[in-house]
Design a protein around this nucleic acid. Structure first.
Lengths: 343, 343
DNA sequence: ATGAAAGCGCTAACAC
DNA sequence: GTGTTAGCGCTTTCAT
């Protein structure tokens, strides 16, 4: 492997100059810089990451913590974060944080402490108290996306507002019997987003002078299948049925659409359905949704990380931990919602 | 940050011994080992990855190349590879190899050459000739999953056989007019799997004495939406329609199911549909498929990598580049296939 | 089984 | 603007 000494020899300068020329830190005359670059190119020289990290303390590598890699939302965020970071010369090291308590502890106790990463992005992951302490103890930038903890700088949509918007859309269309498919209790415990969406739903109803009826809530697990089952429950029970459903995720909303079709409902004539996320399949199913632009979220997180690493103390950043940075969202109306049938 | 010297001091041994005790390389008496571990624990010591890498040449880190992170198949493989590797103390660095030519070159020319990884796993990614040369030049283990190049050790299902199996299932049920939804030509160019599945389809038909009718082929892009459109074409044209469809992926098959439903087909009475993959939604849609166990593939790739790094020259491995390691697959019959309606 | 010491390949003062 | 030099925190001979 060609090392920095050879480049220095070929370029006729010291290794320090090579380092400066190639990294851009410290000043080097334009001509030397050109010579160094030429030498490096001709030799096919690439800086050794470990050597550079050891000497500088910088790893040019960001750790990304993700749960459920196979859920669309997470892989979408991951893909865009990764692309943005790569574009700025950073690698990303993936830590998939699963249920497995042992693997999980290993991540926080060892893997993240190996000085391999300069910062950490935690994607919508429910962190325990001890885990958050661990992250804080690392003394490196941590950016959370959609996480619930006030101790971490968090980028997130205002989930209460998102849910309110979706619900208000249905109310504005004239619906009064609106059901909600949200998180099952266990899921809720360590992952507060579902709860917030439920609150937003309730707020909107109350503001419209309607009561929240427990019969019109059905828990599910944020998958298509879960949404399908929940909708079957909601629509299959004897007695009165809702004229609209607000599902706390697009995947559940899609499941609900499928369930409604199977039960013979015509959408949106007999039933309106609205979701949340901006899922890639939303357009295909004609799903009305509140888009939270997951890909953009990934980019935002990456940029926030880059800022933090460059010491950019923006106004927003100093407000930091206290108030989470709120991300944009938008109601996208498609074919799955309409005014309820008269009568 | 506590370093190895402190551990050595506390344990009353040299740093060399600490290193040996903690890494397991070289012999250390049980008692010293215990003392060192106790000291390390009490100090909260964790080896610095860059320092260790620099000194040893080993990074304990595997690079994973993935296209389309947001496609279910890839994220599933990635999740299982990652879990398996983590279990063995390896981190994984993610390189999402996109269309963007510049980013892409950067990966092969720079990122992978930084000595940050000990090996590379390429997940179903179409590699150019120059790119493969680059990988080979790295002189580290490279494991491909489902890739097409004979120069790399490749784990893959026999895609021809997979397609034959799916098609033979339909033939055995008595279908004679079988359509195929496969890759569109561009997609085919750099990614040979679709072509092989098409070949397997053709082989099965020919073996049954049937001719391959171009009218019964429709290209798509491996998404639900693509499968939906393709099926609409196949089923919406004037003239005779197929009684069965073989889709080259489960996502396309699901799209086809939705299209068929929308056109008023009852499945499987009017139409049988079979896919390939073992998609998580398969059971939900009652989809008959040839499961290729993607999660297991990820684990296999991880294990193959670990073997390679440990210098395990298995019989299979020496056969290596020449014959790809064939992965298991299995026909899973569900509700989407049945005998064609009489007449 | 353990210690001493020489690097691994770079970066960052510091000096000029 | 450029060179000298002292590490960065480990691992690994080589002795003993």
């Amino acid at each position: 492997m060609v090392s920095i000494d050879e480049v220095a020899r070929v370029a006729g300068v010291s290794t320090a100059t090579v380092s400066r020329a190639l990294s851009g830190r410290g000043r080097v005359s334009d001509t030397t810089k050109a010579r160094v670059e030429a030498a490096a190119d001709s030799l096919g020289y690439v800086v050794s990451a470990p050597a550079s990290s050891l000497a500088s303390g910088r790893a040019r590598n960001i750790g990304v913590l993700v749960p459920f890699l196979e859920r669309w939302f997470f892989s979408t965020v991951l893909a865009s974060t990764s692309a943005e970071l790569m574009r700025h010369g950073y690698d990303i090291t993936l830590y998939s944080v699963t249920e497995d308590a042992e693997l999980r502890r290993n991540v926080f106790d060892t893997l993240l402490r190996r000085k391999r990463v300069d910062g950490i992005i935690a994607v919508s992951i429910a962190l325990g108290d001890a885990e958050i302490e661990r992250l804080l103890a690392l003394e490196m930038p941590v950016i959370a996306i959609g996480g619930p903890d006030p101790r971490l700088r968090t980028l997130t949509v205002d989930d209460v507002a998102v849910a309110r918007l979706a619900t208000e859309h249905l109310l504005a269309l004239g619906h009064r019997d609106i059901a909600h498919i949200g998180a099952s209790p266990e899921f809720d415990l360590d992952f507060h987003i579902p709860t917030q969406r439920r609150q937003g739903f309730a707020q909107a109803l109350e503001q419209a002078g309607l009561e929240v009826r427990p019969k019109l809530f059905e828990p599910a697990d944020f998958t298509i299948e879960g949404g399908f089952r929940a909708a079957k429950q909601l629509l299959g029970r004897p007695g009165a049925h809702p004229t609209a459903i607000f599902a706390a995720s697009d995947e559940m909303a899609i499941g609900a659409i499928l369930a409604a079709r199977e039960l013979g409902y015509r959408l949106p004539a007999d039933l309106s359905i609205v979701g949340v996320d901006g899922h890639e399949l939303g357009a295909f199913f004609g799903l009305t949704t509140v888009d939270q632009f997951p890909a953009a979220q990934g980019v935002r997180a990456a940029d926030a990380m880059l800022d933090a690493l460059n010491g950019q103390v923006t106004a927003r950043r100093s407000a930091s931990a206290a108030s989470p940075d709120h991300l944009p969202f938008e109601l996208v109306v498609r074919r799955s919602t309409a005014r309820p049938a008269a009568g």
